[in-house]
Design a protein around this nucleic acid. Structure first.
Lengths: 250, 250
DNA sequence: CGCCCTGTTGAACGCTGTCAAAGTCTGTGG
DNA sequence: CCACAGACTTTGACAGCGTTCAACAGGGCG
């Protein structure tokens, strides 16, 4: 897939600002600093590798639009996805301090990435402590999501795992204002969904049929339609506390 | 179990300093700031709850000695542990910005905790940017460990999971200088180990027998003896890159 | 001495994986 | 407009890893 480079615009940080504002107020100075931290915009297509495992990193990438995933590959070729990222997520802010990631970040759809040089992030840590804490917070929410995925993989049944993931994504899309009334974007194959849940594509297929049969959710080519949110939450045992949706001083 | 309160000493931050120094140099000013951030020391016993899910937090706790765990409880009473913490780990530094944790932190052994008021952490973020980044880094390593556990729970067999956990703990204990030549402390029941791996205690028991039978590792009441580290690593597919053991400017 | 927690063992069950094949959709090019 | 290729989805039969259930053993501690 070809890659295009563009000039950044104010709209590019909108989803990130929404995401952070849901957890604490941001000042104008802070939102401006985020906007100015963006060096350029690049676009990629499905399957493109945005960050390769082990590479030394100099930029962090903010997902402006589209869907991407953190994917860990095993020696035998099997894969496990450890997080899905939607607009407003800094897909490799972890790389700002880790310097190398131990996994790939790959695009699941056409994506627009805002490139932020680590040097500018460093300046933020030296001049804007509250904004620094908010960026730190965003990585802590990533960690909380990781923990919930550990519970899913370790203790939930296949149908609960898929249900839980759907609840999580609907909630996160709502935070940035990108969910429909009862649906959210999901441009993902069943094989990729299987890699999220640690299942096989065959079994994911059966689970999706069961979810449809129970009237809970329907899997489409590009999105998921939630037919019965309460039922889905109950099926999943979903509680949104781990997403830290309270606005409070941080 | 009774709780005792004591005055902090320099030695209380030693393991943390070692852990951070393994990733980047710390200045004297920074190590002093860490030492002065400690308000008091408290001790707890096995089974004690150090942090309860949902509580509003005002301090973060640095584990000085002993072993503790992040534990998520499900409605049906089953549990999943999402991380084990050893000396030098800030068990709820995440709580500094999340303000509430979505899981419990429990002691697995007698533990010594250094209590650090959030107010003092906030001052660090406002005056010591590099130390702030190092503390942030420590939470990013937690997240990397979480991701590895997702892979374990999602894609590794039971014996690989247990082997991988042993490799991880031996490596982390070595960083803070608390591992023996071929062994590390593990004051944990098989049921608790099962909660780490998303398995049943019965199956964990069989896996431990298999590891012993293959001459890879032996499970003791208070520690694990690694008989064949290379073999264990191969069995687990263990790579230590996710622990960010390179010292470099951050 | 006796309780309770922890560890151990065996047998049967079942969720999910594996394997194989057929069906469907979509974009492409003739 | 149709034929075709390739990726994705769907289905069925069967196997296996890990669970469940039950019973028993061992050991620390009151």
């Amino acid at each position: 897939m070809t890659m295009a480079v563009q000039r950044p615009e104010d709209a590019d940080v909108l989803s990130l600002v929404r995401k952070l504002q849901a957890r604490d107020d941001l000042s104008v100075e802070e939102t401006t600093a985020l906007r100015n931290a963006v060096d350029r915009i690049e676009t990629f297509g499905p399957g493109d590798v945005l960050v390769r495992e082990g590479d030394l990193l100099t930029h962090s990438q903010l997902l402006v639009s589209g869907l991407c995933a953190r994917s860990k590959s095993m020696p035998d070729g099997r894969r496990q996805i450890t997080e899905l990222h939607i607009a407003g997520d800094f897909v490799d802010l972890h790389g700002f301090l880790l310097k190398r990631l131990e996994h790939d970040v790959i695009a699941f759809s056409p994506v627009r990435m805002a490139m932020v040089p680590h040097e500018r992030l460093k300046v933020i840590t030296e001049t804007l402590p509250h904004l620094t804490r908010m960026l730190w917070l965003s990585t802590l929410i990533d960690a909380a999501i990781h923990r919930e995925w550990i519970v899913s993989a370790g203790r939930r049944s296949a149908i609960q795992q898929v249900s839980h993931l759907f609840c999580e994504l609907l909630t996160r899309y709502r935070v940035v204002g990108l969910a429909g009334a009862d649906r959210f974007p999901m441009p993902v194959t069943q094989e990729q969904l299987a890699d999220c849940c640690g299942l096989t594509p065959v079994h994911v297929n059966r689970v999706l049929q069961e979810l449809r049969g129970e009237g809970l959710a329907e899997w489409g080519r590009n999105d998921v339609v939630v037919r019965d949110l309460d039922g889905l939450r109950r099926r999943a045992g979903f509680e949104d506390a781990y997403l830290s949706l309270e606005s409070r001083p941080r």
